[in-house]
Design a protein around this nucleic acid. Sequence first.
DNA 1: ACAGAATTGTACAACCATGAACAAAAATCA
DNA 2: TGATTTTTGTTCATGGTTGTACAATTCTGT
Lengths: 166, 166
Amino acid sequence: MNKNQALPWENPRFHNWIAVARACQVMGLSLARALQPLDLKPPHLDILVNLFRAPGISQQDLADKLLVGRSNLSMLLPQLEKRGLLVRRGDPQDRRILRLELTPSGTDVTLQAIAIQSELIDRTMKTASTDECNLVGEVMTRIIHELTRPDTVEEGQADEPGRKKA
Amino acid sequence: MNKNQALPWENPRFHNWIAVARACQVMGLSLARALQPLDLKPPHLDILVNLFRAPGISQQDLADKLLVGRSNLSMLLPQLEKRGLLVRRGDPQDRRILRLELTPSGTDVTLQAIAIQSELIDRTMKTASTDECNLVGEVMTRIIHELTRPDTVEEGQADEPGRKKA
DNA sequence: ACAGAATTGTACAACCATGAACAAAAATCA
DNA sequence: TGATTTTTGTTCATGGTTGTACAATTCTGT
């Protein structure tokens, strides 16, 4: 039991990551509250932003970007479509695919939501200098690459988050 | 509409935070996979670790620490109790309170889970130097304080995450 | 002491997310 | 061409999370 560090709380890597995780959690809660007036939740915002930046994307590609399952989108997208925020148009070239696009009203809501999120993030991150901020982003990018390296991810045939890339 | 920054993608604070959020997401997915052999999910680990560090804590205090609702714990704790990982003992001083404690078997599982999590975090954070790592943690701590400042949180009387402190 | 307020944990309905099984369409390959 | 495999999206059962309503207990103020 004592051949390696039994309790990792004095390990800087460990407790510093715990701080990252907690910051994400409180940011998520704050964002959820800030989005309430628009009747949106963070997952909805993720969808809308990706549609804003990549109009015409398919549901599968969107699921890959968001790291969620296709079934998730199959449940959420009809709701947003009924609210008139987006449309799903069949692709004549490949009739399996539904291409997603924001409606004008959806674009409007998306811009409002982005403004809310941006304001929240800006206020929050003002506690760090630009240099610190950039360093944090750089470290996080390295972490993402480390965790998505194909040889450390090796996984099965699931429908769900983190599939093998075509 | 153009009185402020319409699209914040060239804002360093914004896109660097997006990197933080994504890193947390992939870390969460990796942790969930790494915990599968123990038949635990990240929320279970959060509970066990807090019981390990604060034996005898009440459900309410635990919910406050985890930033989840009491009802959440009322659903999860009986499962873990049935698995023999913890016990809920009534407090003779205050008969409303159930005090939580790990069983020996629960302590054993918790130590295994912590080892798994610690290994994952250590491998991941090795992509950053100790100084970078500490700076990240410091920035995150500032962010947490900013987001939990009482005057910016002002909220209602909900049962759920982020209540006013007694 | 006692009435009203506050706190702790539970029960339940609603919603969200996941993974497996499925149908339709396209790609592959003999 | 025709058979097999792959890809895309849906459906459904399961389980996780939230918020509300509630019973039991303790606290507060008079």
